[in-house]
Design a protein around this nucleic acid. Structure first.
Lengths: 337, 337
DNA sequence: TTGTAGGCGTTATCAA
DNA sequence: TTGATAACGCCTACAA
């Protein structure tokens, strides 16, 4: 069994109160005893029992993240990297990271959030893939549970967040394509209720308009952020009477799927058809035609989200509650180099 | 604040004991009160406080998994899928999944295991990427902490496990390559202390021998299970005076890296150079030359590991403590179809 | 069949 | 500066 505070107290002939306060660095403990206590506790291998502490403090030192998993065989590098950042940051702040998976915007998802909130399983949540109007944000705000998000919903509820500027990003992408001589540019997006979709689509439209190109609704397709979705949407686009010469994709995975069908059709990506993505996942650098994309430092972003969340939880002031990143254009062969 | 057992008791004018026992389904509660209690508890939205329960029961209803993360930008589909299975299975058994990341076989990793064991943070561990002699297994066994593993170490310590037969798998791969007419077959493996490496290398050697081919030490390279590692190792192989005509890779990511350099060199994969992998990650079906590989149902495997672990934790008998899967050969263009 | 009461290991209040 | 002591919410001997 674990060493308890009582045993440390007995060892030193002090009260458990003193031990507790000494270890928590209160200033009403004499320096001498404090040092002694810290040393002895260390030697005895004492560390406070988590459950007891939680029960008493009504805090769990745990943050929660619920992974959207629409299909069993999901394997999205975006989430690997995101998770990795969450895990590392949490660990370094001595927090635990509690994970569950649930289909996005599904009853199951709701149940888990409610269960975790209700049972006080976590002190706060990290949320991404934000919807335009997002019940998770509404619910947690209403329940007064700390949360941070990647992207902001339109709910106008106050919470710390990080945004990656997809609107300007997509303008940049479109501008780049136009400069490379591609003008009939299609767009493959995601579900309409996703914040990133709206931002990026708007950026695409604005980019076109600013280049003097009339957006063509026939060139706007919906995918589902997966390779497969990109493949199918691109297939539809390429079967049009007047197919596009370039496709801007809401994320890299979609773009990779689009390039796949292009290759199948014998098109030379970067010449016959330009393709661009968004994310900057590692894989994008290694596709048959390396992918031009907008890079966002996801690992750093996810670490920063945790940092913000923990700051919020412990009640410290947040120097900057809203951070906006500008994604970086990485030009590769898929747009002709 | 959460509804407590006391409030439910007050509501019904019963003692908390009765509530507790009724909800836990003890048989010394009258059917009538039991039903009433269950109903009222439900209505009031009562669910037992986790910390209190843990403190009392000395259990956490949480299982732990520590993700090997050697580089910050790790994004390995193998782990996405593995994690996804762990998360789903844990959730469906009403367990939590606690995640941390640490570089494999590093001091940090040791610290986390020790901390979690010491502080009773989890009831048990899931371990994969097992080493030949694995201190994690030794340590947890010694500490009497429940664990399950994917692959078994040579430590001869008793614990439930699942194995995927890499030895026979690699024989199958080599046989397939030989049948396709490739005889000068190289191997790119992983760190020598990994169990999968030893199994798969042995399978490769045996496969060659059985085909009457003398293994050539010059054709055996070491990667690191990543695309990059595969790329570099394959580059060395292709620069040999007598380069191989086929490369068997310890996993798909390595194989994808190997194909990359092959393409760069202008080799037609499947004809000039055959490449095979192991894992069956989704990406492998979509590479420039789709990859022949050994498929293992990782999602199911990870779910099953959780199932076994929980059974072990609660002390129920395990019908089958050691399961061996045979990976399935999936033939694609990278070996000539 | 139901209720009383003690204790799991902490932290926090109050008194010494 | 230190120490007794009462919670935190739950489970479970034991008593009724």
């Amino acid at each position: 069994m674990q060493v308890t505070i009582r045993e440390v107290a007995k060892q030193l002939n002090l009260s458990i109160t003193t031990i507790s306060r000494a270890l928590d660095g209160y200033d009403d403990v004499s320096e001498a005893t404090r040092k002694l206590v810290v040393k002895t506790a260390e030697e005895m291998g004492y560390s406070p029992n988590r459950a007891a502490r939680q029960l008493r403090r009504q805090r769990t030192d745990t943050i929660g993240y619920i992974l959207p998993s629409n299909k069993p065989r999901f394997a999205d590098p975006f989430f690997s990297e995101f998770l990795s950042g969450l895990g590392d940051a949490a660990a370094s702040l001595n927090y635990d990271l509690l994970i569950s998976t649930a289909p996005a915007d599904h009853e199951t998802e709701q149940k888990i959030y409610q269960r975790w909130v209700h049972a006080h399983k976590v002190d706060g949540f990290v949320i991404n893939r934000v919807r335009l109007y997002d019940w998770r944000i509404q619910y947690l705000s209403y329940q007064q549970v700390p949360l941070v998000t990647l992207e902001r919903s339109l709910d106008e509820l106050e919470h710390p967040s990080i945004e990656v500027d997809g609107f300007n990003g997509f303008q940049t992408l479109v501008t780049h394509l136009v400069e490379k001589g591609f003008r009939r540019i299609a767009y493959i997006g995601a579900s309409q209720d996703l914040k990133i979709q709206v931002n990026r689509l708007n950026g695409y439209m604005t980019g076109l308009t600013r280049a003097g190109i009339q957006p063509d609704p026939a060139l706007i397709e919906e995918g589902n952020l997966t390779r497969q979705g990109g493949y199918l949407a691109a297939k539809r686009l390429l079967s049009l009477e007047k197919p596009p010469v370039a496709i801007a994709c809401v994320n890299d995975l979609t773009a990779i799927g689009a390039m796949e069908i292009a290759h199948e059709r014998g098109l030379v990506v970067g010449k016959d058809l330009a393709v661009v993505g968004f994310d900057g996942i590692e894989e994008a650098a290694h596709t048959q035609s390396p992918l031009t994309t907008l890079y966002q430092p996801l690992y750093e972003i996810s670490r920063e989200l945790v940092q913000m969340l923990v700051t919020l939880i412990v009640g410290d002031p947040l120097p900057q509650a809203h951070i906006v990143y500008t994604p970086q254009l990485v030009i590769r062969a898929s747009t002709g180099g």
